[in-house]
Simulated scan of single mutants.
Amino acid sequence: MNERQVDLAHTVALGSIDDVDHHEVQDLLDTDDPALRAEFISEIRQTREALATLATATATPPPAALRSRLLAAIAAEEPMYRRNQ
Rank of each mutant, 00 (worst) to 15 (best):
M1W: 01
M1E: 05
N2T: 15
N2A: 09
E3I: 08
E3T: 07
R4Q: 15
R4M: 10
R4C: 04
V6T: 10
V6R: 14
D7K: 13
D7E: 15
D7Y: 06
L8H: 08
A9I: 04
A9T: 04
A9E: 02
H10E: 15
H10N: 08
T11K: 12
T11Q: 11
V12Q: 02
V12C: 02
V12M: 04
A13P: 04
A13F: 09
A13G: 08
L14K: 15
L14E: 14
G15R: 08
G15W: 07
S16C: 09
S16H: 12
S16F: 11
S16Q: 14
I17W: 03
V20D: 15
V20P: 01
V20Q: 14
H22Q: 14
H22K: 13
H23S: 08
H23R: 13
E24T: 05
V25N: 13
Q26S: 04
D27Q: 14
D27L: 12
L28N: 02
L28H: 03
L28A: 06
L29D: 03
L29K: 06
L29I: 11
D30W: 03
D30L: 10
D30R: 08
T31I: 02
T31C: 04
T31G: 01
D32A: 12
D32L: 11
D33R: 06
A35R: 10
A35N: 01
A35W: 02
L36E: 04
L36Q: 05
L36V: 08
R37H: 08
R37C: 06
A38Q: 15
A38Y: 14
A38F: 12
E39P: 00
F40I: 06
F40K: 03
I41E: 10
I41T: 08
I41K: 09
I41L: 14
I41C: 06
I44Y: 05
R45H: 12
Q46C: 01
Q46P: 00
T47V: 08
T47Q: 13
T47M: 11
T47P: 01
R48S: 06
R48D: 00
A50Y: 01
A50L: 07
A50M: 06
L51M: 15
L51H: 12
T53G: 03
T53P: 00
L54N: 05
L54T: 09
L54C: 03
A55W: 09
A55I: 09
A57L: 11
A57M: 07
A57C: 01
T58P: 01
T58S: 13
T58A: 07
A59H: 10
A59G: 01
T60Q: 11
T60A: 05
P61I: 00
P62M: 12
P63H: 05
P63E: 10
P63D: 07
A64L: 07
A65P: 00
A65L: 05
L66N: 03
L66K: 04
R67C: 00
R67G: 00
S68Y: 02
S68W: 05
R69C: 00
R69H: 03
L70R: 10
L71N: 02
L71I: 06
L71G: 00
A72G: 07
A72T: 13
A72F: 03
A72I: 03
I74V: 11
I74E: 02
A75N: 08
A76S: 09
E77R: 15
E78V: 03
P79A: 12
M80L: 15
Y81W: 11
Y81Q: 08
R82T: 04
R82H: 06
R83Y: 07
R83N: 14
N84H: 07
N84M: 11
N84C: 00
